[in-house]
Simulated assay, not measured.
Amino acid sequence: MRHKYGYNKLHKPTDQRIAMLKSLAVAVFRHNRVETTEARAKELRKMVDGIITLVKKGDLSSRRRVISLLLGDKDLVKQLYAGKERFGKRSSGYSRLIQAGQRRGDAAKMVLFELVDAAA
């Protein structure tokens, strides 16, 4: 049965949620690490793992899809495709969540979302 199988809506309309996740994904690929709430990071993990899988696939249609998922940043896409051997032997688990305590304002659980290197 597929009870409770889905995604977290993060209390946002669809267009805002997708835009937020795309901008977080761009930040992760630029800086290899981003600090965000636990709920956002769990949803971001799905998107980032999918993008890395598309990069490893390497054909033209996957490149165009990655460009659309990364807000049209072609320079970032070139960097990803140039360094795609970074995740070559790994079949999944491209990211990790590290607990970072609670946010001061509303006590939300904060995590560090970072990419796992191939050497680690």
Rank of each mutant, 00 (worst) to 15 (best):
M1P: 10
M1H: 08
M1N: 08
M1Q: 08
R2L: 12
R2D: 06
H3V: 07
K4S: 12
Y5N: 06
G6Q: 06
Y7L: 12
Y7Q: 12
N8Y: 04
N8D: 14
L10M: 01
H11L: 05
K12F: 02
K12L: 15
P13D: 08
T14Y: 11
T14A: 13
Q16F: 09
Q16I: 10
Q16K: 15
I18A: 00
I18C: 01
I18N: 03
A19L: 13
A19G: 05
M20K: 11
M20S: 13
L21K: 04
L24K: 05
L24P: 03
L24H: 09
A25I: 02
A27E: 14
A27S: 15
V28C: 08
V28L: 12
F29Q: 05
H31C: 04
H31Q: 13
N32Q: 15
V34K: 07
T36V: 13
T36P: 03
T37M: 05
T37N: 10
E38F: 11
E38W: 07
A39G: 09
R40M: 10
R40K: 15
A41F: 07
A41Q: 10
K46V: 12
M47P: 00
V48Y: 03
V48H: 03
D49S: 15
D49L: 00
D49P: 02
G50M: 08
G50F: 06
I51Y: 10
I51D: 06
I52F: 09
I52H: 04
T53G: 10
T53C: 06
G58F: 08
D59E: 14
S62M: 07
R64P: 05
R65M: 06
I67T: 10
I67C: 02
S68K: 12
L70Q: 03
L70W: 01
L71V: 07
G72N: 06
D73S: 02
D73K: 09
K74L: 04
L76E: 02
V77D: 01
V77A: 07
K78Y: 13
L80Q: 00
Y81N: 07
G83Y: 08
K84P: 02
K84R: 15
K84G: 00
E85T: 14
R86G: 00
R86N: 14
F87A: 04
K89F: 06
S91H: 15
S92G: 10
S92W: 04
S92N: 09
Y94Q: 05
Y94P: 01
Y94W: 02
S95K: 10
S95W: 03
L97D: 03
Q99E: 13
A100L: 12
Q102T: 07
Q102P: 02
Q102A: 12
R103M: 08
R103D: 13
R104T: 12
D106P: 11
D106I: 09
A107Q: 12
A108T: 06
K109M: 08
K109E: 14
K109T: 15
L112N: 13
F113M: 02
E114Y: 13
L115Q: 12
L115K: 15
V116E: 00
A118S: 11
A118C: 04
A118V: 03
A119V: 14
A119F: 10
A120L: 11
